[in-house]
Amino acid sequence: MAKECKVLFIHGIGDGKADFAEAAWKILSDKHKAMTGKALAPSAKVPVRYNDLFEDFRKAPKDGLQEVRPFIQDAAVLEALQDLQGSGSFAYTHILDVLLWRFHTYARNAVIERVASTIEPFLPGVIQGTTNLVLVAHSLGTAVLTESIHLLAADGRLAGCWLPAVHMLANVAKVLEGPLIPAYRPPSPSRCRPPLATADSDAALLHYFTYRNLYDPVPMVDRFRPDWREAVYHETTLRSWGPKGVVNPHDLATYVQAPEVYMKLLRSMTLDFTAFSKEREIQEIQNATQAQGAPTPTEAKLREILTALIAQYGEKASPAAFVKLLQALVIAKIL
């Protein structure tokens, strides 16, 4: 019996718009159509949002300010308060989101529970073997998903079943790991892991896919590199710049449009190993490389800087490498 596929997308930092997964889904659907002649069923896509919890925090406390406002005579102060509650600046969204996730126990727990309870309705299908549940997380979403799966497993809500696969794009589960549950550090790592050994009854996943763009500074702070078994842990390194003229190595769509990513995702979603074979993946990578063409001046400049940096630091990740890469992005006027 064919399994019904459900793909849950968990968004990254400050990317909680209702249609955040649309661009990535379009890429997957177009590729699927090109290779099989059929588009993906739109009902398979399930965007999982938690950003509204952070947005509510930025607007809080409404009641308290309402109470104090009549006493504030200074128009500038009132305006500043108004701005503070409605601010959409990078510092006030992305940075506060990270601070809330990393240091605010209650916001963190509310986010973990939100994502866990969104996954929950699909679990009976996984338990019965009728649903192929594919979890795709990006950036901050990878840290959130790690904790949410741990919660579902530790709370017994997985009811003893294995989750088939997670796909972590721009994996920051290590960078933003919480104080209680390390992403993979022994002796008690997160249960969001594939079986570490033959007797690993705590593992919640069968397969763990992680993708890192070599030019993406975010996962570089503290790279995700567990010593898990190759049979169940699949790490892919990309060299992807994003669409022509829109250089954003961290973007969700930049990751998904890489053949190394969309082919693995489509395999995982459809369990069709003929249309999305490994041979086809190699061919798609070759095609994408040829289609890349000559880089724009900005891309060329950035590549030069990054290539030098990567040569200097090699595969080692460190805060210093992150700072230098960030500097390079600022110099290239990308950030």
């Binding site: 809080a60 209650y106 309870s117």
Partner: peptide, 19 residues
């Protein structure tokens, strides 16, 4: 047993506090 207790706590308590 679970029913988004943390979500309700967040809305009812945390969001009523000052940062």
């Amino acid at each position: 047993r679970s029913s988004d207790q943390w979500g309700r706590f967040y809305k009812g308590v945390v969001l009523q506090e000052y940062p």
